Amino acid sequence: DELEKRVKKIARKLNLSLDQVEEWLKRNNNDELVEAVKRLKKK
């Protein structure tokens, strides 16, 4: 979905793993995208 695409884009842009992106999003209080990261990690 759109949020998952955004997460992947962030990960690529910042050259981070999904775990690192998740931490980064949590620090930025971006719950919506944190949920998207969790969905991606399950895939």
Rank of each mutant, 00 (worst) to 15 (best):
K5M: 14
K43N: 07
A11S: 05
D19F: 05
R12H: 13
E35T: 05
E35I: 07
K8R: 13
L33W: 05
I10K: 01
R6E: 14
K43G: 06
L16T: 02
R12L: 13
L18W: 10
N15G: 15
L16D: 00
V34S: 06
L33R: 01
D1I: 14
E4V: 07
V7H: 01
E22R: 05
E2W: 14
A36C: 02
K41W: 05
K26M: 10
W24D: 00
L25A: 15
L18S: 02
K5L: 14
Q20F: 04
E22K: 04
K5I: 12
E4K: 04
N28D: 06
L40I: 10
E2Y: 13
L33D: 01
E22W: 09
R12V: 10
N28M: 13
L40Y: 04
W24L: 11
K38D: 05
E23W: 10
K9H: 14
S17C: 06
E35Y: 01
E23D: 11
V21M: 14
N15W: 07
E4F: 06
K26D: 03
K38P: 00
V37G: 01
V37F: 04
D31Y: 14
R27G: 11
V21I: 13
V34H: 06
L33S: 01
L18K: 02
K5H: 12
K5Q: 14
V34W: 10
V7S: 01
V7E: 00
L40M: 08
E35V: 04
K26H: 09
E23T: 07
V7M: 05
R12Y: 13
D1R: 13
N15L: 05
K38Q: 12
A11R: 05
D1A: 11
L18R: 02
E23C: 10
R6D: 04
W24K: 00
E4H: 03
D1L: 13
E22M: 11
E23P: 00
E2V: 12
R39V: 04
R6P: 00
Q20W: 05
K9T: 12
D1P: 06
S17A: 07
L33P: 01
K26Y: 06
K9D: 15
A36Q: 02
N30T: 04
L40F: 04
E32A: 13
L3H: 07
S17W: 07
K9C: 15
L14G: 02
L33F: 03
L16H: 01
R27F: 11
L14H: 10
E32G: 05
K26T: 10
K8F: 13
K8I: 15
K8D: 07
D31M: 15
R39M: 07
L18E: 03
K5W: 14
E32N: 07
L14S: 02
E23I: 10
E35Q: 08
D19P: 04
Q20A: 10
V7N: 01
L25D: 00
E32P: 04
V34C: 09
L16S: 00
R39L: 06
L40G: 01
K13A: 12
E35P: 03
N30G: 09
K13Q: 12
A36G: 01
V7P: 00
K38H: 09
K8P: 00
I10W: 06
R27K: 12
V37N: 01
K43R: 11
K5D: 13
E2L: 11
L25N: 00
L18I: 07
L3M: 12
V34P: 03
I10P: 01
K38W: 03
L3P: 04
D19K: 07
N29S: 11
V21R: 00
L16A: 05
V37L: 10
E23H: 08
I10H: 01
L25M: 05
E2Q: 08
L18T: 02
R12N: 12
L16G: 01
N28S: 10
K5P: 01
K38T: 05
D31S: 13
L14A: 02
L33T: 02
K42P: 03
S17E: 03
K26N: 08
R27V: 11
E35K: 08
K9V: 12
R39P: 02
L18F: 06
L16F: 10
K5S: 12
N29Y: 08
A11G: 02
L33Q: 03
N28W: 13
I10A: 03
K42G: 08
K42F: 06
E32Q: 11
E32T: 08
R12T: 12
K38S: 04
L18M: 05
I10S: 00
E4M: 09
D19A: 12
R39D: 03
K8C: 15
R39I: 06
V21T: 03
R27L: 13
V34E: 07
R6Q: 14
A11E: 00
L18Y: 08
L18V: 03
W24F: 11
A11H: 01
D31L: 14
V7G: 01
N28H: 14
I10N: 00
E23V: 09
E22N: 02
L40V: 07
Q20S: 06
K41M: 08
K26G: 06
E35C: 08
A11F: 04
E2I: 11
V21G: 00
L25C: 14
L40A: 03
L3C: 13
N30H: 15
R39N: 08
Q20V: 05
V21A: 03
W24E: 01
N29K: 11
N30C: 15
E35L: 08
N15A: 08
N30W: 15
R6S: 08
L14W: 13
A11C: 15
R39Y: 03
A11N: 00
S17H: 05
K8A: 14
S17V: 03
V37A: 09
N28V: 12
N15T: 03
E4A: 06
K38I: 12
K38V: 08
K8Q: 13
R6H: 09
K26V: 11
D1K: 12
K42Y: 06
E22Y: 09
V37R: 01
K13G: 05
A36H: 02
E35S: 06
R27A: 14
K5F: 12
W24P: 00
N29I: 05
V21E: 00
Q20G: 09
D1S: 12
K38G: 05
K43V: 06
V21D: 00
L14D: 00
K5T: 10
S17L: 06
V21S: 00
N29L: 06
K5G: 08
D19R: 05
K41V: 04
K13M: 13
Q20L: 08
N29P: 05
D1W: 10
K13W: 13
R27I: 10
R6M: 15
R27Q: 13
K13S: 11
V34L: 15
K41F: 06
N29R: 09
K13F: 13
K43F: 10
D19H: 07
K41Q: 09
V37Y: 03
L14V: 01
K13V: 11
E23R: 07
K41I: 10
E2H: 10
S17Y: 08
N28K: 11
W24R: 02
L33H: 01
E2F: 11
L25G: 09
A11P: 02
D1E: 12
S17N: 11
N15Q: 11
D1M: 11
L14M: 11
V34I: 13
K38C: 10
A36Y: 04
N30A: 14
N29T: 07
K5C: 15
W24I: 10
V21F: 08
Q20K: 07
K42T: 08
L3N: 09
N15C: 14
A11Y: 03
K9R: 14
W24T: 00
K43M: 08
R39F: 03
E4L: 06
L16K: 05
V7A: 05
N30L: 15
N30I: 15
R6N: 05
V7T: 01
N28A: 12
K41D: 02
L16W: 13
D31G: 10
V37M: 04
R39C: 10
D31V: 13
D19E: 08
D31A: 11
E2T: 10
E35G: 04
V7K: 03
E35R: 06
K41N: 05
S17I: 05
E23Q: 10
W24V: 04
D1G: 13
N28Q: 12
E35H: 06
L3S: 07
K26I: 11
N30Q: 15
L25I: 05
K5A: 14
K9A: 15
R39A: 13
D31Q: 14
E32F: 08
K9M: 14
D1Q: 09
L33K: 01
E4T: 05
E32H: 09
A36R: 02
W24M: 09
A36L: 07
L3Q: 11
K8V: 14
V21N: 00
L14P: 00
E2M: 13
E22L: 12
K13T: 10
L3E: 09
S17F: 08
E32S: 11
K43L: 09
R12A: 14
R6I: 15
L16I: 08
D31W: 15
Q20P: 01
E4S: 05
L25Q: 00
R12E: 14
N30K: 15
V34M: 11
V7Y: 03
L33E: 02
L14N: 05
K41A: 04
A11I: 13
A11T: 03
N30V: 12
R12Q: 14
L3I: 06
E23S: 08
Q20N: 04
D31T: 14
V21W: 03
